[in-house]
Design a protein around this nucleic acid. Sequence first.
DNA 1: ATTATAAGACACCGTATGGTGTCGTGTCAA
DNA 2: TTGACACGACACCATACGGTGTCTTATAAT
Lengths: 116, 116
Amino acid sequence: MNENNQSRDVFDAIADPTRRQLIRLLSEAEELPLHELTAQFEMGRTAVSKHLAVLKEAGLVLDRRVGRETRFRLNASPLREIQDWVAFYSKFWSENLVRLSRLLEEEEEEPNGGLE
Amino acid sequence: MNENNQSRDVFDAIADPTRRQLIRLLSEAEELPLHELTAQFEMGRTAVSKHLAVLKEAGLVLDRRVGRETRFRLNASPLREIQDWVAFYSKFWSENLVRLSRLLEEEEEEPNGGLE
DNA sequence: ATTATAAGACACCGTATGGTGTCGTGTCAA
DNA sequence: TTGACACGACACCATACGGTGTCTTATAAT
């Protein structure tokens, strides 16, 4: 019952480079109509519209009609899930932290201090 | 000429839930053979092997043969790209920060203070 | 009133993806 | 040495995906 109506996996939504570019463009412009977004790509309007639909299903984009154009804006909050996910693994790419976590694990498993 | 030999997009590699589950399993176990990983899923060995191949192409996994089994281990460092990417957008999902950035933008665009 | 623009809806298409099953081979165990 | 096991390499298949083009409708401009 939260704000985010994501019927689509956020990981999936950001997997496509075109969609990441859309996110980038929307982050720079507050609100943009479809035709203006389309102008930034080599593909046709329909394709861009489909990508935006995917982003919308993931809750990453909001749209509203203004006159004859549909304007899109970014809603970045679902990206928090990505950040949380990747934050969990950040401890694995620092050698020092890896050593530290191993030490902690060994202490947990062998509380009698049996280091080899 | 760096360490990471990623011939595949990391965003793409982590888009699949099965592959994220593989990453999770490997993060908990240091090194695991294919058959042991396969036992954690409902799909067959070939499918799991393919997912691991994708992770390998993204540089997220290393493998070595030991006897008749192929053991896999996690290499999380390519995930740094994800973290960097998402960190850029973290400023967009705090309401306070959004308001602040809007204020700054309005000041830049209309330095005469013409608010409607 | 007419014309141009913006976009939704839809049909269509080639290819990538995610799964299957099978066969052959190296390795470990009895 | 025989058999079971772990795996790679294929061939195969259904469906999802990322694109196209066309038609129609609502809106804006002239």
